[in-house]
Design a protein around this nucleic acid. Structure first.
Length: 817
RNA sequence: GCCAGAGUGGCGGAACUGGCAGACGCGCUCGACUCAAACUCGAGUGUCCGCAAGGACUUGUGGGUUCGAUUCCCACCUCUGGCACCA
C-alpha cells in the first residue's frame, strides 16, 4: 500500500511564500476599473522580535484583507516600521550599540519574521520612519504646521534627573518615590521651552465622528479624553488687582466661594505670596513638583495645601477670600486656578474642613432638609434653589446656572465659556533617536524654519553615547552650528527631536508612494487609495495615536494637502494579548511569548488559525498555547479529507447529499457574515464543524459526488484567508487554477440552507419542559395546541389551566400557569 | 482616583434583536488501531441528588424589571487597557 503523504507545513509554506513573492500576487497597483480597498494594520515598533501580540494584530487583519480581495476589491495591505523611539537609545546606553544599528538590525530580523506569517503585504510599499527619505517629509509637515500657525513654543515641565542631567520618560521614573531608573536620584520637574501643536484648535472637529464607522467604545474614550464641559470663566482679582481667571461649570455657586486655590506652579504664586508664608509655600511647591498629575488628581489623595498669605476679591459680593495653593489643582487643566465652593464640591469640602475654612451653603436642593455649612459632613453637589446669593437668591433649580452666567456677563466679570481637557500636543523630545525638529535660531532673525531644499535635517551618526548627560545632539561639537536661512549669519539648530507619534500620524500616506521624492506622497496614489477603508490595531491606541492622526489629517486638509473629514473610514480594534501571567507582555517582565518556536513546530497556518480561534479578537486575554493542538488536528483532518480522499464505490443517498449541502451553505452564510464583522474565532469554529460533518458524509460514501466536490471547492475558498498556505497546496493538488488567492468568494445557495422542520422549545413558567417538532411556518395556534397536547406538559400542568400562552414564531411556546 | 472594557464548566471560549446556556476546541475517561509509542478513529464529559427514569441548581456578588435575563436597570467586588515623554 502506498504511504500517505502527511501534511508538512515546513515544506509547503516556504515554497508558496517564495512563489507568491516572485509572482507579485499581492502587489497592489492603481486600477481604475476595480474598486479599491485600503486595509491598514498599525505598523510595529522594531523592538527586536515579532511577538504573539504582533501576530494577533496582523494575521486576522491579513485574513480580513484577503477576504475583501476575494470579494472583488483591489486590496492594498502595506507594512512598515515606526522606527524612532526610546528603546533604541536604551539599547545604546545599555549595550553600547548605536541606535541606528540596533534599529535596522531589528527591522531586518522582523522582516523575515513578518514574511513567515504568509501575509499579503505589498513589500514594495514598505516605509521606515527613521529613513531620511521618510523623516524629510515628517520635517516638511512640521514646517507646514509652523507656517500655518499650528506650531508654537512655550515653557513646559519635563521630568528631569538632576544627576544624569537628562529628561526622563514616564517609564524611566520608578515607583512612588519617583526615582531615576538609572541612578535612583529623585526626579524633579524642570521647565524647558518646547514645541507644541495646536490640537485644541481642532477640538470641536475631533469631537465629531460624523461619517466614520468607528467603535462606540473608541468614540466614548476619545470624547471623554477631550473632555468638553460647558460653564463660565470668571475673573477674580487679587487685592493688588492681578486678575485670576477661573473656569467653573457651576457659576450658580459663585456666592459660596469662600477661598481660592491656585496650582502650585501657577505664575502668580511667586508674586502674591507674602514674606511670612514664603518658606512654607516654596517647600510645598517643591514637593508638588515631584508628583504625577495622576497622583495629584486622585480623589483619595489626602488634600493638602498652603495659604499664600494673599487674598482675592470675589467679584459677586466683593468679599475678601484667602488664596491657597494645593496640588489637587493642576496647571494643565482649565486655568490652573479654581474658586473653591466647599459646600458643593467634595474636594473643596475636604480641604475646607482640614484647614478650617468657611463652608457656606448657596444651593438648597429641593425636598432636602435645609443644609447647614457648619455641620454638614459632605459636600452636596446637587442642583437646587439658590440661597444666600444676594439678588439671585430664590432662583429655581433648573435656571440657576444660566441665570448666574447671564449675571456675571452683565456685570462684566465673566462670560459663558467652554473648557476642554484636551491640551495642545507637546512634540519636543530631548532625545537623539527621533526626527530633528527642522528649526534654526538666529540672534537677528529669531526662529526660522529650515528651507525645503535643505531637508532633511539629517541626524548625525557620529555622536557620543554617554551613560549620563544630555541629548547627543546638544553635545555634538558641530551639528548644531548652521547659518540663518534668512540673513546668512551664524545660527543654531534646534537640538530636540520630534515625538514619534508625529511620525506615525502620517505613515498611511507614505505607504502610498514610499519612494516618491517630490512630496510626502504621490497625488495619483492618494486620489485612488485614500481614505483608509479599515484601520486595525490595538485598543490601547484609542486615545493618543488615534486622536493625533485625526488631528494631523484635519490640519493637512485645511492646508489643501489631504481631503475629506477623516483619514480612516472604519476602525476595528483587537484586544491585548497578555503574558501567561496575565500581565502585559514586556521584556523586563520576561513574559513575552514568541511565535517562532510554534511556527517551527506547527507551521504558520496553525499559528494563524489558533490565534484567530483562541479568543474573541476584540477581547484578547492571557496567552495560552494549550489548545494549539486542536487547530493542528483540524488542519491535519482537512489535509486527510482533501489530499487523500478515499474514493467510495457507491453513490451517497439523497439525504446525505442534502444534509451535506445544507451544512455547507449554512456555514458559508455564517462565515461570510463573520468575516465581514471581524469575528474570527467563530469562523474557525464553523469550519471545524463543517469538517466534522464532512467526515460523517465521507463515511456514508459522499466522496466523489458532485456535492462533495462542491463542498471541497467552497471549503478551501473559505479557509484560504485564514490558512493561506495549506489552502494553496490543496487547491493545486485538486488541479484547480493558480492561485487560490486570486479566486472569488463562493456564491451562497440560499435554498440549500432551508429546513422543513424545526424544533420548538416548550416552557412552563419559563422553564424548559419539552421540545416539539413542527413544520416550518406552523401557525401560533397550531404550535400552542401541539405544545399543550404534549404528555410531559400535561404532567407538569397537573390539571391546572394555563393563564397565558406566549408563542415566539419559530422559537418557543411558554405556558404560564 | 478618573475614563473605558471584561467576568459563563477543570481550561480557552459560543449564544442573532430579551427566547433551548455551555457551539467549537483543549484537557480528562473509556474503547478501537498498534509489538509499542506517536498519529488517527469512535463514545462520553457543567454541578448536585438518583440504580434508572428523572429532578434540582448553574453565566463574579446582591437586588430589580419581565411570561422569560449571560443579554436590560441599580449597587458592589475582581481583573485588563488608557490617563498626555513606552509605542
Amino acid at each position: 500500500m502506498e504511504e500517505r503523504e502527511r501534511y508538512n507545513p515546513n515544506e509547503i509554506e516556504p515554497k508558496w511564500q517564495k512563489k507568491w513573492d516572485e509572482d507579485g500576487i499581492y502587489n497592489a497597483d492603481i486600477d481604475p476599473a476595480r474598486e479599491k480597498y485600503y486595509a491598514l494594520t498599525m505598523l510595529p515598533y522594531p523592538s527586536g522580535d515579532l511577538h504573539m501580540g504582533h501576530w494577533f494584530a496582523m494575521t486576522p487583519s491579513d485574513a480580513r484583507a484577503r477576504f475583501m480581495r476575494m470579494q472583488g476589491y483591489n486590496v492594498m495591505f502595506p507594512i512598515g516600521f515606526d522606527a524612532f523611539g526610546l528603546p533604541a537609545e536604551n539599547a545604546a546606553i545599555k549595550r553600547n550599540i548605536h541606535p541606528k544599528e540596533w534599529t535596522y538590525a531589528n527591522i531586518e530580523r522582523m522582516r523575515g519574521q513578518l514574511r513567515s506569517m504568509g501575509a499579503m503585504f505589498d513589500w514594495r510599499r514598505e516605509a521606515v520612519s527613521a529613513d531620511p527619505e521618510y523623516y524629510r517629509w515628517t520635517q516638511w509637515f512640521f514646517i507646514k504646521l509652523f507656517e500655518h500657525d499650528l506650531a508654537y513654543r512655550k515653557d513646559s515641565a519635563v521630568d528631569w534627573c538632576p544627576n544624569c542631567n537628562t529628561t526622563l520618560a514616564r517609564e524611566q521614573v520608578w515607583g512612588e518615590d519617583r526615582l531615576c531608573e538609572r541612578c535612583e536620584t529623585p526626579v524633579i520637574k524642570k521647565q524647558l521651552e518646547q514645541w507644541f501643536f495646536k490640537t485644541t484648535n481642532y477640538v470641536e472637529d475631533l469631537l465629531s465622528f460624523e461619517g466614520i464607522d468607528w467603535p462606540e467604545r473608541v468614540r466614548t474614550l476619545q470624547t471623554n479624553w477631550m473632555g468638553r464641559s460647558e460653564g463660565a470663566s470668571v475673573i477674580f482679582k487679587t487685592e493688588d488687582g492681578d486678575p485670576m481667571e477661573v473656569f467653573t461649570t457651576r457659576a450658580d455657586t459663585l456666592w459660596g466661594a469662600t477661598f481660592m486655590v491656585l496650582a502650585p506652579e501657577h505664575p502668580l504664586v511667586a508674586k502674591i505670596t507674602t514674606a511670612e508664608q514664603k518658606k512654607e509655600v516654596d517647600a510645598y511647591v517643591h514637593q508638588a513638583e515631584r508628583q504625577t498629575d495622576i497622583e495629584r488628581e486622585s480623589a483619595d489623595n489626602e488634600k493638602t495645601g498652603v495659604f499664600t498669605g494673599a487674598y482675592a476679591i470675589n467679584p459677586v459680593n466683593e468679599e475678601r477670600i484667602p488664596i491657597w495653593i494645593a496640588d489637587y489643582v493642576l496647571l494643565s487643566y482649565g486655568t490652573g486656578a479654581i474658586m473653591a465652593v466647599p459646600a458643593h464640591d467634595q474636594r473643596d469640602f475636604e480641604f475646607a474642613r482640614k484647614y478650617d475654612l468657611e463652608v457656606r451653603v448657596v444651593i438648597q436642593p429641593d425636598e432636602v432638609e435645609p443644609l447647614d455649612g457648619a455641620t454638614m459632613e459632605a459636600a452636596v453637589p446637587a442642583y437646587g434653589t439658590m440661597v444666600n446669593s444676594a439678588e439671585l437668591t430664590g432662583t429655581p433649580a433648573d435656571e440657576t446656572i444660566l441665570t448666574a452666567i447671564k449675571y456675571v456677563d452683565e456685570k462684566g466679570f465673566g462670560k459663558a465659556s467652554v473648557n476642554y481637557r484636551l491640551r495642545d500636543w507637546l512634540i519636543s523630545r530631548q532625545r537623539y533617536w527621533g526626527a530633528p525638529i527642522p528649526m534654526v535660531y538666529c540672534e537677528k532673525c529669531g526662529v526660522q524654519p529650515v528651507p525645503d531644499d535643505q531637508l532633511p535635517v539629517l541626524l548625525p551618526d557620529d555622536v557620543e553615547w554617554k551613560p549620563t548627560g544630555e541629548s547627543p545632539l546638544k553635545l555634538h561639537p558641530t551639528w548644531k552650528d548652521t547659518t540663518c536661512p534668512e540673513c546668512g549669519e551664524a545660527a543654531t539648530r534646534e537640538t530636540d527631536t520630534m515625538d514619534t507619534f508625529m511620525c506615525s500620524s502620517w505613515y498611511h500616506l507614505r505607504y502610498l508612494s514610499p519612494n516618491y521624492d517630490e512630496g510626502p506622497f504621490d497625488q495619483k496614489e492618494y486620489d485612488y487609495w485614500m481614505p483608509v477603508d479599515t484601520y486595525t490595531g490595538g485598543i490601547e491606541h484609542a486615545n493618543m495615536h488615534l486622536v493625533y492622526t485625526r488631528f494631523f489629517h484635519k490640519a493637512l486638509r485645511d492646508m489643501g494637502i489631504t481631503e475629506g473629514r477623516e483619514p480612516m473610514t472604519a476602525l476595528r480594534n483587537q484586544g491585548i494579548v497578555l503574558g501567561e501571567d496575565s500581565e502585559k507582555m514586556s521584556k523586563s517582565r520576561g513574559n513575552v511569548a514568541a511565535p517562532d518556536d510554534l511556527v517551527e513546530k506547527y507551521g504558520a497556518d496553525v499559528v494563524r488559525a489558533y490565534l484567530m480561534f483562541f479568543t474573541r479578537w476584540t477581547l484578547g486575554g492571557p496567552w495560552d498555547s494549550q489548545g494549539i493542538e486542536g487547530t493542528a488536528r483540524w488542519l491535519r483532518r482537512v489535509w486527510t479529507a482533501f489530499a487523500d480522499p478515499i474514493e467510495s464505490a457507491g453513490q451517497p443517498s439523497e439525504d446525505v447529499v442534502k444534509a451535506l449541502r445544507r451544512k455547507l451553505h449554512q456555514t458559508l452564510e455564517s462565515v461570510t457574515a463573520d468575516y465581514k464583522s471581524f469575528e474570527f474565532n467563530t469562523i474557525v469554529a464553523s469550519l471545524m464543524e463543517l469538517m466534522n460533518e464532512m467526515y460523517k458524509a465521507r463515511e456514508k460514501g459522499a466522496v466523489g459526488s458532485p456535492a462533495w466536490d462542491e463542498a471541497t471547492d467552497i471549503y478551501i475558498r473559505m479557509m484560504a484567508p485564514i490558512t493561506p498556505h495549506i489552502a494553496e497546496e490543496l487547491w493545486e493538488r485538486l488541479g484547480k487554477p493558480y492561485s487560490i488567492h486570486q479566486q472569488s468568494w463562493p456564491e451562497l445557495d440560499k435554498s440549500a440552507t432551508e429546513v422543513d422542520e424545526i424544533t420548538l422549545v416548550v416552557q412552563i413558567n419559563g422553564k424548559l419542559r419539552d421540545k416539539i417538532t413542527v413544520p416550518v411556518g406552523t401557525s401560533d395556534e397550531d404550535a400552542k395546541a401541539k405544545a399543550l397536547a404534549s404528555e410531559t406538559v400535561q404532567k407538569f400542568m397537573d390539571g391546572k389551566e394555563p393563564r397565558k400562552v406566549i408563542v415566539v414564531q419559530g422559537r418557543l411556546v411558554n405556558i404560564v400557569i
